[in-house]
Design a protein around this nucleic acid. Structure first.
Length: 215
DNA sequence: TCGATGATTGAG
DNA sequence: TCAATCATCGAA
């Protein structure tokens, strides 16, 4: 008889400074449970290879900078829960609420995954067979895993839930840079990416457009 | 109510 | 490099 390993992340994992959580989320597994027509379940999953931290009043680039609103309530709620928003009229972005108890809001944007389970299903959702473009961006991975705002507020620490995070392997090599796609607070190095096989490179599954952005 | 903006993406 | 596309938010 073997002991069942603890797969989920406890909420204390997310109860730390947002940038620390962002760094430590690398290597973890994002899991989406899909229910098929025949009543069966299917797992879509991937290793988190790229994240960004967003704060509140301390961070002009954050959605929470100007306080609470209907869109960003999840950034002010319980840590470990999903904050999902719609942007550019096309895409959903997935975050996990995370902050030390000194801040009033915070979240970690999940920017890219290395696909693991359910790749065939992701290819259908994405209408693409290129494994390197399936989940290599925040808007791509939500499309690949069929994640929309209907999961906003989901408790991602509960492994029973449709959307949750499980333990994985800790990366040996992590690159830290400024965040992508923002115009303010460019001084903060709050983007974290798993390094590639070649020294000085990023994971092949990191967001493409930003492949060369690092210091 | 109105206009500007955006934590993006795919095509050219 | 650029347009698509629309929810959100602050200003009027």
């Amino acid at each position: 008889m073997s002991l069942c390993p603890i797969k989920y992340l406890s909420s204390t994992f997310f109860d730390r400074p947002t940038e620390v959580v962002a760094r430590n989320l690398l290597g973890k597994m994002l899991v989406r449970i899909l229910f098929t027509k025949l009543g069966k379940t299917e797992r879509l999953s991937g290793i988190i290879v790229e994240t960004e931290a967003y704060g509140s009043k301390n961070d002009p680039a954050s959605h929470a900078y100007r306080g609470i609103s209907p869109r960003n309530v999840s950034m002010f709620g319980q840590v470990g829960r999903a904050y999902i928003y719609f942007t550019y009229g096309n895409h959903y972005c997935l975050n996990v609420c995370a902050r030390s108890n000194r801040l009033e809001a915070g979240a970690v944007l999940i920017r890219a995954l290395e696909p693991v389970e359910g790749i065939g299903r992701m290819e259908i959702f994405r209408k693409s067979n290129d494994v390197f473009s399936l989940t290599s961006g925040p808007g791509k991975l939500t499309e690949a895993l069929d994640i929309t705002r209907r999961f906003d507020g989901e408790d991602m620490t509960n492994p029973q839930n449709i959307l949750h995070i499980e333990h994985g392997l800790d990366p040996s090599n992590v690159v830290k840079t400024a965040r992508i796609g923002i115009s303010r607070a460019l001084n903060k190095k709050w983007r974290f990416v798993i390094g590639g096989e070649i020294e000085g490179r990023l994971s092949k599954y990191a967001s493409r457009r930003t492949y060369r952005h690092f210091d």
